[in-house]
Simulated scan of single mutants.
Amino acid sequence: MSTTQSDRLRGLLEPLVAAKDLDLEDIEVSRAGKRRMLRIIVDSDEGLDLDLCAELSREISDLLDETDAMGEGEYNLEVSSPGADRPLTEHRHYVRAEGRLVKFQLTEGGELIARILGVDDEGLDLEVPGVKGRKATARRIAFTDVAKARVEIEFNRKNDTKEEEA
C-alpha cells in the first residue's frame, strides 16, 4: 500500500474511530487471492467487544463505499483488536499492559522478562520474577533502554488483588 493511500485511509477513518473513543492502531492492506484484505486494528483502554467491532466495521464499510479510498475492485474488510501478543510501541500500550508480564529486548543487548508495575513519561517500574525460589526484585528502566517489547502470554497467571476484589 502506498504511503498516499495509507495516509488517505488514516485521515478518512481516524475521526470515525476516535468518535467511538478508540485508537486507530494500524491499517494493513494485503492480497488474498484476487481480492485485497483491508485490516483495521483498533484498541481502547477498556478493551473491545465483538459488538463494537461489528458496529465499527459496518460504519467503516459505509464510509469506504462513499469514497474511492480503496479504488476499484473487491476487498474484504476486517476490524479487530491488536491481540495479546502485539508489540508495545506507544506509551499507551505500556499503560494498558500494566500488571502484565512483558519480554523486553534492551538497546544495550540482552533480554529481560518482567511485570510492569507502573508507567510514567520517562519509563517503567518493573518487577523481575525471582529464579529458583528467590524473591522478585524491583527494577526501573527508561523507554530509551527498550528496543522492543511484547506481552508474554500467561496461562497460569495468578490473579492480583484488584481482580479478586472485582
Rank of each mutant, 00 (worst) to 15 (best):
E98G: 08
R115Q: 12
T67S: 10
E74H: 13
G123K: 13
A32E: 11
R39I: 00
K34L: 07
D125E: 15
D120M: 15
L77Y: 02
D125Q: 15
D62I: 00
A114Q: 12
P87H: 13
G123T: 10
I41T: 14
L38Q: 08
D62Q: 07
V128M: 10
G83Y: 12
L38N: 09
G99M: 08
I27P: 00
E98M: 15
C53H: 00
L38W: 07
L22K: 08
G33P: 06
E46R: 07
D121Y: 13
I116P: 11
G109P: 11
R36Y: 02
L63A: 06
E108R: 15
R115G: 01
L22V: 07
G47F: 04
Y94N: 12
D85Y: 11
E78H: 07
G47K: 07
L112I: 08
G83A: 12
K103V: 03
S81T: 07
L52W: 01
L124T: 13
E55N: 08
D62T: 05
S57E: 02
G71V: 02
R115W: 02
L106C: 10
R92G: 07
R96P: 10
V128D: 13
S81A: 14
R36V: 00
L38G: 08
G130F: 03
L56P: 01
R31W: 07
D120K: 15
E55T: 09
C53F: 00
S57A: 06
E78K: 10
E59H: 06
Y94R: 14
I116E: 09
R96S: 14
V79S: 10
S80V: 00
L124F: 13
P82N: 04
D68P: 03
E108S: 14
V95W: 03
E90F: 07
G130P: 05
G130T: 01
D23I: 05
D120N: 15
R35Q: 13
L22Q: 08
V95K: 11
I113M: 13
L48D: 02
H91T: 08
I116Q: 06
R86N: 09
L117K: 15
E74C: 04
D120P: 14
M70P: 01
L50K: 03
D49K: 05
A32G: 05
L64F: 02
I60D: 02
E127N: 11
I40Q: 03
D45P: 01
D68W: 02
R36L: 01
G123H: 12
H91R: 14
D23H: 11
L63V: 03
V29G: 01
T67W: 00
H93A: 08
G109D: 12
F104K: 10
E55F: 04
G109W: 11
E122G: 13
S80R: 06
P82S: 03
